[in-house]
Design a protein around this nucleic acid. Structure first.
Lengths: 198, 198
DNA sequence: CTTTTTATATGATCATTATCATATAATGAT
DNA sequence: ATCATTATATGATAATGATCATATAAAAAG
């Protein structure tokens, strides 16, 4: 049928959004083309009208995940001065809420061990996303020179993503909560934030 | 045939060792039973004489990975005094050598996003391994009380595993090297180690 | 009103993979 | 020597999943 202009693009966006959520939740390889299409209210056959291959979908989904990351970054930091924005970002990222919602969370924490097994398009999208996030974090740091800011941002990103990934991996909830709390505290300290409330 | 006593156990050990390597490299779900058996010089059919299911093999493989972790920990720290052992452990863990050999490296860095999708036996094995590793790290820390040592160990483990996982995930080798170097530096600093050489 | 267009549907194919029933071969026990 | 044992092999089954050829339906263009 001759749907109205832009219908195809809207459908594609919907499919990518669903794929981005499902892939963070279950891993890219555990999400089937037919399942994603089904969730979008479509059947599997139409898939190849939108994407060259499943790899292509994975790459689009990774891009989408990092777009969502940037939106969350803004949500958590907009309208706050630098230290407050940083504190807010750390607390929101290294949180139980984030841990419990991988499907809408950061791609780095969700795909940490999956992405290196993916195709080059997905990996490029991932690299772009990581760089973008590093820049965002560095922009919140008050260090003198840019090199130090970048170094600190990289180290903090490692701890943030490592903590959330580990907190998800561990089955014991007490241990999981502990890991998050320890990382949060350490991150605030080394970001130069004085401890206020808990 | 009536093989000599202990043949079965030796075979099983060999299979688990191979599975542990392959699963760290490719992810548990990407490693087939037939492939592992083939690498052990066997055919797929005999598998169920050794394991109840693939889940069972995954759990055994996870246990094995952490045994290897403990052996590496000893290798890197034995015969050194506490600060030197800690420095050695950090430098060896957060290294390009470790990054480039997931198949023989730490399970936490290798399976960070895979393990939460596995069965309960594998997850229990993982929890045991994480706790054991946390104790090992805490034993290297010179903090006053045990709580602080545990907190710091958790935070450091998050950064170490996060850095190695991220360094593997990223395609750009320059960025990957940078992430490792940044994490290494930060970890040594917050572990209270003075900077000596590079 | 007919034709063309195009997003989506149907249905098939081919590959992969976990699992299991059954067979085999070699060797200690009889 | 024959038998019983047992680790491993053969071969089948059933499920899943990516891909693709082809069909269809509905609206826009004529």
């Amino acid at each position: 049928m001759r749907y109205d202009e832009g219908h195809s693009e809207k459908t594609k966006n919907r499919v990518v959004k669903i794929a981005a959520a499902q892939m963070r939740k279950h891993g890219p390889d555990k999400v089937g083309v037919a399942d994603v299409m089904g969730r979008a209210g479509l059947t599997h056959g139409g898939f190849y009208a939108h994407f060259d291959s499943k790899d292509d979908l994975i790459a689009a989904a990774v891009d989408r995940m990092f777009e969502e990351s940037r939106a969350r970054f803004r949500e958590w930091t907009d309208g706050k001065d630098r230290p407050e924005a940083l504190r807010s970002y750390i607390n929101a990222y290294v949180s139980r809420a984030h841990r419990d919602k991988p499907e809408s969370g950061c791609a780095i924490a969700a795909l940490s061990s999956d992405i290196r097994r993916q195709g080059s398009k997905a990996r490029s999208a991932y690299d772009r996303g990581v760089n973008s996030l590093l820049n965002s974090i560095a922009s919140l740091l008050g260090e003198e020179d840019g090199v130090k800011r970048r170094t600190l941002a990289q180290s903090m990103l490692a701890e943030m993503t490592g903590a959330v990934a580990a907190a998800r991996a561990v089955a014991d909830e007490t241990l999981s909560d502990e890991i998050l709390a320890s990382a949060r505290r350490s991150l605030r300290a080394r970001a130069g934030l004085a401890e206020l409330q808990k």
